[in-house]
Amino acid sequence: MKIGIYPGCSLNGSARDYNESVFAIAKVFDIELVQIPDWNCCGATAAHNLNKELSLALPARILALAEQNGLDEVLVPCAACYSRLVVTQHELKVEPEIKNRIKKVIELDYRGTTKILNVIEWLDKYIIPGIEEKLVLPFKHKVACYYGCLLVRPNKVLNYDRSEDPQTMDEVMRKIGADPIYFPYKTECCGAGFSVSRTDIVSKLSGKIIEDAEHRGAEFMIVACPMCHSNLDMRRPDINQYFKTKFTLPILFVTQALGLAVGLSPKEVGLQRHFVPVNIDS
């Protein structure tokens, strides 16, 4: 089984742990993840603020390359990259004129046939069906599933899960033995791109998310986005300072929790890279 993967910038940088856990799981389930050759930046938050054409051309080029290399399905673990790719595919589908213009810009053929999978969709489709056999260490913990903003939005384009009260990650966690708590903050803003420029805003917003999860007895928070992870994990000292407290709630990528449940070691899923220490005692 061969599936394309688009890592984007963060999976090779701040979210190497995410990358490692994705590849480690794929290996356990005999899935070959093929990087799209010569991939480029998805445009992130910058491109669509500056130049619409650029913001469509960048993802379109990635998708065109996937088509060219026969990758019918592409896993995009980063929620932000995922959003850019999905939105682009949608816009080019509904606006054939723009599509033709973009084709000229990227100098590649583009059909828009690639199936883009976010990490939850990927798990749901390829991992969960075979999970029972491989489940060696059920992840018996209370978890708060945090979806953030981009995984399930915009509604109009995605049509995936319910944007105000998503459930798919909770379902995946249940399948590996976890107990997802009632968590109203699951789609509240973490501060997103203010990670660098306004850490005070991130501290306040991310802090509230953590505070609520801890208050409700979560042992772990589960995420599926490198940006959320860095705000909730890497910015923890700022958060604790802002809230004048010591939040200890560890933040795991969904693939890390799943990796542990299928018997991968903490190191294999990159837990040692976290800023907030993760103590797995089970």
């Binding site: 105000e164 009632y182 109203p184 903050y185 509240e188 609520d212 208050h215």
Partner: peptide, 11 residues
Amino acid sequence: STIYECDGKLI
């Protein structure tokens, strides 16, 4: 924007 429960109250 949202309503949720916390400690028996509605936020």
